[in-house]
């Protein structure tokens, strides 16, 4: 009896998991990268569900059919060493599944790492996102603006976040726009996203970084290009300029809420260099060498 509860419990969780009442953040994409990852996740869930069903069915069959209470008292189980066809099948089918998922994985990983499909003709807007315990500093070099703990993003424009950290390793994550990536000291990482829907969403540091980690979140306002331009003008008219002294105060550990400045800290406190100026394949090679060190 209890075994049935267990299985129905498992099934219930899975159903809830697949069809929650409100869409889960990862399943509610607002941009092409997040949509891509959602598709990949769904493909993997359905494929794996097949595996789960086969294993569960076999287990239930064995348990029901070969319980000692169901077999005659004098039944002596046979010696069976194995069968190369059966065992071959147990290797072959999983190999096919893994080959399929590997193709999905490699393709989607390359895609997730590059400028999103359909946005490749535009020059990405560069935003530096740097973390310090427990805040996010967003520098817009093009617009000459810096914000703390909130972002304005124009809709339908590819965005290249350049990530680094002033202290602990942090992970920059806006689940509804795309996957996360680490921000670290002494090196720059890049994250390509784009937003396809206007609205307010959230982002956070998802990598544990000490006492104030839980509250290291930020707001993301996706607006039209026109509204974005208006916001830039407004900031230039109203916000204070950012100087080195103010910025150093901002770096002190703590939570500061949202702030806006003109100018960026990049002028007096530049971002770490990228490990290579080259792009494309050489870029990959360099990174591999890094790994070997």
């Amino acid at each position: 009896m209890k075994k049935q509860w267990l299985f129905s419990g498992l099934l219930m969780s899975f159903l809830l998991f697949l069809g929650g009442c409100e869409p889960l953040a990862v399943f509610d994409p607002k941009g092409p990268q997040a949509a891509l990852l959602k598709d990949v996740i769904m493909i993997s869930i359905w494929t794996m569900l097949g595996v789960v069903v086969v294993v569960f069915a076999m287990l239930i069959y064995m348990l029901v059919k070969y319980r000692s209470s169901k077999t005659p008292a004098d039944y002596k189980p046979p010696i069976i060493e194995g069968n190369k066809w059966v065992e071959g099948l147990c290797v072959g089918i999983p190999v096919l599944i893994i080959v399929f998922l590997s193709i999905v994985s490699v393709q989607s990983t390359y895609e997730a790492e590059s400028v999103p499909e359909g946005y490749k003709d535009q020059e990405p807007m560069v935003i530096y996102a740097s973390s310090s315990n427990w805040k996010w500093h967003f520098s817009y070099p093009e617009q000459d603006i810096e914000t703390l703990n909130y972002l304005y993003l124009p809709k339908d424009r590819p965005i290249e976040f350049r990530l680094y950290s002033f202290d602990a390793i942090s992970s920059f994550w806006i689940p509804q726009l795309g996957g996360q990536k680490y921000a670290m000291t002494g090196m720059l990482t890049k994250l390509n996203v784009a937003a396809s829907e206007e609205g307010e969403i959230w982002g956070r540091n998802s990598n544990f970084s000490g006492e104030g980690f839980a509250e290291q979140t930020f707001n993301v306002n996706v607006v039209s290009q026109q509204e974005f331009d208006e916001w830039v003008t407004e900031v230039h008219n109203t916000a204070e300029p950012l100087d080195e002294e103010t910025f150093n105060e901002l770096l002190e550990p703590g939570h500061l809420g949202q702030k806006t400045f003109t100018g960026t800290h990049l002028s007096f406190n530049p971002a770490p260099e990228e490990h290579t100026e080259h792009q494309g394949e050489e870029h990959e090679d360099m990174n591999e060498e890094e790994m070997d060190h």
């Binding site: 990983t109 390359y110 997730a112 996360q180 680490y182 670290m184 990959e284 591999e288 890094e290 790994m291």
Partner: peptide, 8 residues
């Protein structure tokens, strides 16, 4: 997510 790129 440490930024080693798609190939690695």
């Amino acid at each position: 997510t440490m930024g080693q790129g798609a190939f690695v």
